[in-house]
Design a protein around this nucleic acid. Structure first.
Lengths: 239, 239
DNA sequence: TTTCAAATCCAACAAAAGTTCCAGATTATG
DNA sequence: CATAATCTGGAACTTTTGTTGGATTTGAAA
């Protein structure tokens, strides 16, 4: 982890937290950020550790995850530029709610808790954006909570392939490009189970394989599965 | 649902959203609220329906829940005075993220989305509290998400009995007073399964029954189960 | 008290998910 | 190109959870 050239290359307008802030305000914010770079595999911060501040991905791929007592992994997000993370700890200054690692070589901008508080005090628009964004995150978590409590794994898998709202926000990868292991971590299960579910969707005709690529063969069927949690009655047979 | 006498009897200081607001500010807020009363069983608002505004329970017990496609129920919260709900929709003005019903006869104060936005614009402290509270809710949802993805039902049950942080915030009832059906809705499972898990904890010696009451017999054991998701090795036999 | 609805207990079974294991296939990488 | 590492496919099995149904118990109302 090392300092680099100034973060002048960030498109601040793309980040909802900074919408509607004038050039002067943005430059004030910019001056408070620090650029950190990480090698592939490096830990950015850890769950429970002292607040690591507000992070903005400007390069590379970041995994946000938690680990359960048995060591199984739950990937909450896979983030690419431009996305933000650790917004909650940055705000309340308490410990980080999850782990973050660089999947590829990566660069992030970091704004410390103290700096953020200072900026929120002087930049009204930032505070207003923040509250809206937190509300939005809240909705996504409620949605995900329901998925985890109620949906079967084939259903969650279908939802991931449809890349619906929630996943599009949090998972910056198309499922085809993910390994079964990675999909398992996102869905909160194990590789084998994902393999089974995948086979299920394939020979139910909802997905199809062209060589190595998996693509959607029956979007409606997938949507049905994602919504109702049951296989659609009209299972299409391979012709 | 009908109007009643003024909501003068609310202790605003107990509500974190209104901390640090002066008497004048509070009276401005108070004047914008409307009192609604509901009979036991009445629907307060529904998931997906147009934003019902910011709610404060001042009397009775409120259930916050969602329903899955198969009709199973998930109770997100059971709230007693003084607690708030629907903070997210009240803020962003979009549809309610869950259902709310009065379990007993109940009274709530309601602040519409528009009023809230107006107040946030003029009451700096309210905006600052709001952002902190949303951050706090976010943490709770992350925690719950992990519980649902990783923890077994006996483990979740143990956690509920310990009435740990999260549940204490959201579930304003001691588990002893809840029916198995209600516990099932909180844990995201079915009555039968709760019954089985309860029996399991009983004859593992973690809980004990005195007539109808269930109480904690081995707090450490429960904590172990809640944290590690596995039964403690030193299972105590009934003497 | 009687009576009825709700809540509980329990067993047996079905389905889903997790686990273990191994054999191929694919891809990195020297 | 060879070889190792990773990824995939799939069978067999265990455990957990969900489902069904019937027998009791309980508590509130008549």
């Amino acid at each position: 982890m090392e300092r680099q050239r100034g973060p002048m290359d960030v498109d601040w307008d793309q980040i909802p937290y900074f919408a509607g802030i004038d050039a002067f305000g943005l430059s004030r914010i910019e001056r408070k950020t620090h650029v950190h770079t990480f090698q592939a595999g490096a830990v950015i911060f850890s769950e429970g550790a002292e607040c690591a501040g507000f992070h903005i991905v400007t390069e590379g791929l970041i995994r946000i995850y938690r680990v359960n007592p048995e060591g199984r992994l739950h990937t909450l997000s896979l983030l690419r530029p431009v996305a933000t993370f650790n917004e909650v700890a940055a705000l309340d200054g308490a410990s980080n709610p999850y782990n973050a690692v660089a999947v590829t070589n990566a660069r992030v901008l970091v704004l410390s808790h103290d700096c953020l508080i200072g900026l929120l005090a002087s930049e009204r628009a930032l505070l207003e954006n923040y509250v809206q964004q937190l509300a939005h995150m809240n909705r996504e978590y409620i949605e995900r909570l329901e998925d985890m409590t109620f949906r079967s794994i084939p259903s969650r898998l279908a939802k991931l392939f449809l890349h619906e709202a929630m996943y599009a926000d949090q998972i910056a990868e198309t499922p085809t490009k993910l390994t079964q292991e990675e999909i398992a971590a996102i869905l909160g299960t194990t590789r084998e189970v994902v393999g089974r579910a995948l086979r299920g969707l394939l020979n139910a005709g909802l997905l199809r394989k062209k060589g190595r690529e998996v693509y959607i063969a029956d979007r409606e069927g997938l949507e049905c599965l994602a919504e109702t949690n049951t296989m659609p009655g009209h299972v299409k047979l391979p012709e």
